Computed example of a mutant assay.
Amino acid sequence: MYFKSKIRMEVHRYFIYLSYDGSNYHGWQIQPNGSSVQECLMDALKMFLRKEIEVVGAGRTDAGVHAKQMIAHFDFERKLDVDKVCDKLNRILPHDIAIHKVIEVNKEAHARFDATARTYQYYITTRKDPFRRNYAYRLYQSLDILKMNEAAQILFEFEDFTSFSKLHSDTRTNLCTIMQAEWTEVDEHTLVFTIQANRFLRNMVRAIVGTLIEVGRGKISLEEFRKIIEEQDRGLAGASVPGQALFLIAVEYPESIFNL
């Protein structure tokens, strides 16, 4: 008797490095009633590779939020010419999504769970500028940047950021480790807040920025800011700022995932 041997397909995992203007999307994650970046990327891969491809992102950006660097992974049952994949995807995808590189990684590597740090920036402008309306939050008064930076330093004292988390989210823990949090002046009309952490909660950056703005306006003192975090109550923190001024800047991984 002869038996057909089963050929085991070797699965290859690939990281996609991309950027996008989030103005026309309902965020990264696939939505039932709205266009998403994840859906566009999956459709482009399906068109090129001629099969359904699942894409997993490093995180979820909300509606209108942009990414200068997002990382996503997908699997395929044969080795791909990564330069060709990059070129073809850029030809297929809309003008507001760009692929910068595609690389093969360790088969166990995970774009979301293996990320060790994520960095966001939030832009504020005090000048009306029609060319920045989708990329900065317009304020009509000056802020005390020194006080805002003093308050930002208080963030390092804590790990539980329930006060800045979206209510009724599906997260298992509200613990995060913040490695950087500071305001800088880009020019006389522009401020940027840079924050880096090992992970972020839903709406966390926008809630922190909204609360720090209240500190900069003199409506919340440094001790009140500390108390807001200690109380772990979202209702005590400031309102979330609009998403269009928020950018995912970078996602970092351990070198080991790139060892094939």
Rank of each mutant, 00 (worst) to 15 (best):
P94D: 03
H95E: 15
D96E: 07
I97S: 01
I99V: 15
H100L: 09
H100Q: 10
K101G: 10
V102C: 08
V102D: 04
V102R: 02
E104R: 15
E104Y: 03
E104N: 11
N106S: 12
N106G: 06
N106K: 13
N106Y: 12
K107S: 13
E108G: 04
A109R: 03
H110L: 07
A111N: 05
A111I: 07
A111T: 06
R112Y: 14
F113S: 11
D114G: 14
D114S: 13
T116H: 07
A117T: 08
R118V: 07
R118K: 12
T119S: 15
T119L: 11
T119Q: 14
Y122S: 04
Y122C: 05
Y123T: 07
Y123V: 10
Y123Q: 05
I124G: 00
T125V: 06
T125E: 02
R127Q: 11
K128E: 08
D129L: 03
D129A: 06
F131E: 02
R132L: 13
N134Y: 12
N134K: 12
Y135M: 06
Y135R: 13
A136Y: 00
A136M: 06
A136Q: 06
A136T: 05
A136N: 02
Y137S: 02
R138V: 10
L139H: 10
Y140N: 13
Q141W: 13
Q141I: 10
S142R: 12
S142G: 07
L143A: 10
L143F: 10
I145F: 08
I145S: 09
L146M: 13
L146P: 00
K147V: 07
M148G: 08
N149A: 05
N149C: 03
E150D: 13
E150A: 09
A151H: 02
A151F: 07
A152H: 00
A152Q: 01
A152P: 05
Q153P: 00
Q153I: 01
Q153R: 12
I154R: 07
L155V: 04
L155S: 01
L155F: 05
F156C: 14
F156V: 09
E159R: 14
E159Y: 12
F161W: 10
T162K: 06
S163W: 05
F164E: 02
F164G: 00
F164V: 04
S165W: 00
K166C: 04
K166I: 01
K166A: 11
L167S: 14
D170R: 12
D170K: 14
T171K: 11
T171W: 08
R172I: 10
T173E: 12
T173P: 03
N174E: 15
L175Y: 11
L175R: 13
L175P: 00
L175W: 08
C176R: 01
C176Q: 00
T177F: 11
I178E: 07
M179F: 15
M179I: 08
A181G: 09
A181R: 05
E182T: 11
E182H: 11
W183D: 02
W183N: 01
T184E: 13
T184C: 08
T184M: 08
E185G: 02
E185N: 12
E185M: 14
V186L: 14
D187S: 05
D187R: 00
D187I: 02
H189Y: 14
H189A: 10
T190V: 15
T190N: 15
L191E: 05
F193Y: 15
T194Y: 01
T194C: 11
T194W: 01
I195K: 02
I195E: 01
A197T: 00
N198A: 03
F200G: 00
